[in-house]
Nucleic acid binder design. Structure first.
Length: 562
RNA sequence: UGGGGAUUGGUGCAACGGCAGCACGCUACGCUCUGGACGUAGAAAUCGGGGUUCGAAUCCCUGAUCCCCAGCCA
C-alpha cells in the first residue's frame, strides 16, 4: 500500500478533516488563527499556529488570521503587529487578516435574531447575583427573575444597552438555555456585557457592549465559513455551546476539534507569570533570551525552522498532564536546535574563559595563516585563514595542573593538538601571587603543522585557541534554564522562589579576528562549545554573543558523575 | 462532590483485534583534527482487577490516578 494515507503524517485531527471532506460535510478546508492581542507569542502558541496553518495548506485550503479583540480593557494594537511579526517569522501564511470587531454589527443582528426567537434575554441581575445563581458543580443554578420577560422588552433593553444608556455591570444579554445543565457553560451564558471605557483599539467608542468569547468566536467562525475550528482541550466543555448558537440561528456550522496544548519544562508559560518576570525585572524584557517567547528565542538564535520541527516532532494528542496539555522536555527542543544549526552553522574559534599559553620554541614575531574548515557538514562552506603566533589564549577548562582520570586535554607533560595548527606539549606553569595559574608554557612540534604528525603519533585531544596578538575581545552571555525546577509552580507558594540564580552568566573572552565585524543575528558554532548568535547589544569592535545552545559535552558528563 | 477529557519505557508520539515501534534522553562501544557530528549495540513501557476472543494496548465491566470547568477573561 503506497497511497496517500501511508505517506501523509497522520494524527486524529488530520484524520477527522479527511473524513469530513470524504463524507461531504465540507467540500473545502478553512481554518483560523484566533490570537487575542494581549501578549507576545510564546513557544506554546506555535503548536496551534502550525496545526491551523499546515492543515489548511495540506488540504489546499485557507488560513485566516483573526484577532480576537472582544475585550478593550485587555487588548492593545501594540500586540497585533508583534503577533504578525512572530507568525511570519515562523513561515506562516494567511489569506487575510480579520478582527472579531469587524463583525460587531452582524453579530449584533444575530443577537437580535436570537432574542426574537425567544432564545436570549436581558438580565438585570448584578454580576454577584449572576454568579451566585449559577449554582455549583453539584447544585443546579436558579433562573433569573428577568429570564422570561417579553421579547419586545428584551429588544428595547438590548438596543439601549448598545446605545450606552446603562452603566457597566448593570445588565447583560444572556442565552436562554438551561440553568440546571450539568455543564456550567450551558447555564444561560452571558453573550454581551456593557463596557464604556476604555475605547476599543479599532472601533473606538462606537460600541458600549462587547461580546463574550463564546458568543463572538463561534459566530465569527460561521460568518467566515471556517470549516475546522481547532483549539485546545479546555474548550471541550464549550463545544455544546459552540454548536448550540448556529443551530438556533440556522447558520453555517463549523466543526470544533480540540487538542492538547504544548508546555515546556523549566519555564512558565502563562502571560501573567511572564509579565511578572518582566515587570519585576527578573529578566531584561520580553525578548530576554531566557524567556519562552518567540522574540526571545529569535534573539537567542533559535532558528524558526528548528522550532517548527520541534513542534512537528512532538505530535498531537488529547493527553493532558498539566494545564490542558503536555509538557515537553526542553532538552528535546534544544536537540532540534542543534540538529538544525549543526548543518548550517559556520564554525569559528572563540575562547570564552581565556588562559594564556606561550609556545617557548616558537619564533618571536612570527605569524602563520592556518587553514580552517568553515563547516565540516557542508563542503561548500569552504575554508578561512586563522592567524597563529607565539602567544595564544586557550580555554581555562582545557588545562589542568593535575588531571583527573580520563582527562585528555592539556596538562604538564601531555601533548594535544591545537585545532588546524600544531601539536603542543605542556612544559611548565607560571602562577601569580595568589597561586592561580597565570600562564602555561608549551613547546610545539614544527613537523605537525596542519594537525598531523609525520611519525604517525596520535594525540587524544584537540583544543581550540585564538592568537593573542590577533584576538578581538567579545562578551559572551551564557544561559541556563530560568528555573531550577522542571515545574516552577509545583510545591511553591511563589514560582519566583525557584528562579535559577545562574540562568545568565557573562564572560569576557576573545574571538578570532574574522568575528570583529559580526552583525546582530549572525549565528556561528564556536568549536567545541556551542552555537552562538550575535546580540543587538553588540558594538563595533566588541561583539556580544548569546549562547543559543551548547554542544553536547561528554566530558562534562563524565566529570559530573563523580 | 456534578460534568467533560485522558492514561503505552524517564519524556513526547505510533501501533485502529494479529510479532509493542519511532524520536529525545540514558548506558556501552566504534570512528573522528570539535570529548561535536556520524555509526553499532543495549537497558527501559501497554495504570490495576475482571471478562469477551484462537488472539486484547486496542472491545466490555470495574477501580485508581491525572488534566479542565463554578469570569460580565479568552
Amino acid at each position: 500500500m503506497t497511497d496517500e494515507s501511508t505517506i501523509m503524517p497522520t494524527d486524529f485531527i488530520r484524520e477527522a478533516v479527511a473524513e469530513d471532506l470524504k463524507s461531504g460535510r465540507f467540500n473545502y478546508v478553512r481554518t483560523r488563527l484566533p490570537p487575542e492581542p494581549n501578549g507576545y507569542l510564546h513557544i506554546g502558541h506555535v503548536k496551534a499556529f502550525m496545526i491551523d496553518y499546515l492543515i489548511a495548506k495540506e488540504n489546499n485550503g485557507e488560513l485566516i488570521l483573526r484577532f480576537d479583540d472582544t475585550n478593550p480593557v485587555k487588548e492593545d494594537v501594540e500586540y497585533v503587529d508583534a503577533i504578525m511579526e512572530d507568525a511570519r517569522w515562523l513561515g506562516i501564511q494567511w489569506v487575510k487578516v480579520t478582527y472579531a470587531s469587524d463583525y460587531f454589527g452582524l453579530l449584533y443582528e444575530w443577537a437580535v435574531k436570537l432574542v426574537k426567537l425567544g432564545k436570549a434575554y436581558v438580565d438585570d441581575q448584578s454580576p454577584e447575583e449572576v454568579s451566585a445563581n449559577r449554582g455549583t458543580f453539584t447544585e443546579p443554578g436558579k433562573e433569573s427573575p428577568y429570564r422570561n420577560r417579553p421579547v419586545e422588552e428584551n429588544l428595547d433593553l438590548l438596543e439601549r444597552m448598545k446605545n450606552g444608556e446603562f452603566p457597566d455591570g448593570s445588565r447583560v444579554l444572556r442565552a436562554k438555555i438551561d440553568m440546571a445543565h450539568p455543564n456550567l457553560n450551558m447555564r444561560d451564558p452571558v453573550m454581551y456585557r456593557i463596557i464604556h471605557e476604555p475605547p476599543h483599539h479599532r472601533t473606538g467608542s462606537k460600541w458600549k457592549i462587547y461580546p463574550m468569547y463564546d458568543w463572538a468566536h463561534g459566530q465569527n467562525d460561521s460568518m467566515e465559513g471556517v470549516t475546522h475550528s481547532l483549539c485546545s482541550l479546555e474548550y471541550r466543555d464549550h463545544r455544546p455551546l459552540y454548536e448550540w448558537f448556529p443551530e438556533q440561528l440556522g447558520v453555517f456550522k463549523p466543526r470544533q476539534i480540540e487538542f492538547a496544548r504544548l508546555n515546556l519544562n523549566y519555564t512558565v508559560m502563562s502571560k501573567r507569570k511572564l509579565r511578572r518576570l518582566v515587570e519585576e525585572k527578573r529578566v531584561s524584557g520580553w525578548d530576554d533570551p531566557r524567556m519562552p517567547t518567540l522574540r526571545a528565542m529569535r534573539r537567542r538564535g533559535y532558528p524558526a525552522e528548528a522550532i517548527v520541527e520541534f513542534v512537528r516532532r512532538m505530535g498531537i494528542s488529547t493527553v493532558a498532564t498539566s494545564n490542558s496539555g503536555v509538557i515537553a522536555d526542553v532538552a528535546f527542543l534544544e536537540e532540534c536546535v542543534r540538529d538544525d544549526l549543526n548543518k548550517r552553522s559556520l564554525r569559528r574559534m572563540a575562547v570564552i574563559k581565556p588562559l594564556k599559553v606561550v609556545i617557548d620554541n616558537y619564533p618571536e614575531n612570527q605569524i602563520e595563516e592556518m587553514d580552517a574548515v568553515n563547516n565540516p557538514e557542508d563542503p561548500n562552506a569552504g575554508t578561512r585563514k586563522v592567524p597563529f603566533s607565539k602567544v595564544l589564549y586557550i580555554e581555562q577548562d582545557d588545562f589542568r595542573e593535575t588531571p583527573p582520570p580520563k582527562y585528555y586535554r592539556l596538562f604538564p607533560g601531555n601533548e594535544v593538538r591545537l585545532r588546524y595548527a600544531y601539536f603542543i606539549k605542556c612544559a611548565s606553569v607560571v602562577k601569580n601571587d595568589k597561586g592561580e595559574i597565570a600562564e602555561v608554557h608549551c613547546t610545539y612540534d614544527p613537523a605537525t603543522r596542519g594537525g598531523d604528525a609525520p611519525d604517525g603519533r596520535k594525540v587524544k585531544s584537540t583544543i581550540h585557541w585564538v592568537s593573542a596578538a590577533h584576538a578581538r575581545p567579545a562578551e559572551f552571555r551564557l544561559y541556563d534554564h530560568l528555573f531550577t525546577k522542571e515545574d516552577p509552580e509545583e510545591g511553591e507558594d511563589d514560582f519566583l522562589n525557584c528562579l535559577n540564580p545562574n540562568s545568565l552568566q557573562i564572560a569576557h573572552g576573545y574571538v578570532e579576528p574574522l568575528l570583529a565585524s559580526t552583525e546582530a543575528g549572525d549565528r556561528f558554532q564556536f568549536e567545541r562549545q556551542g552555537y552562538f548568535c550575535a546580540d543587538p547589544d553588540s558594538v563595533p569592535g566588541r561583539p556580544v554573543f548569546n549562547l543559543t545552545v551548547s554542544l553536547k559535552d561528554t566530558w562534562a558528563k563524565i566529570e559530573k558523575k563523580r
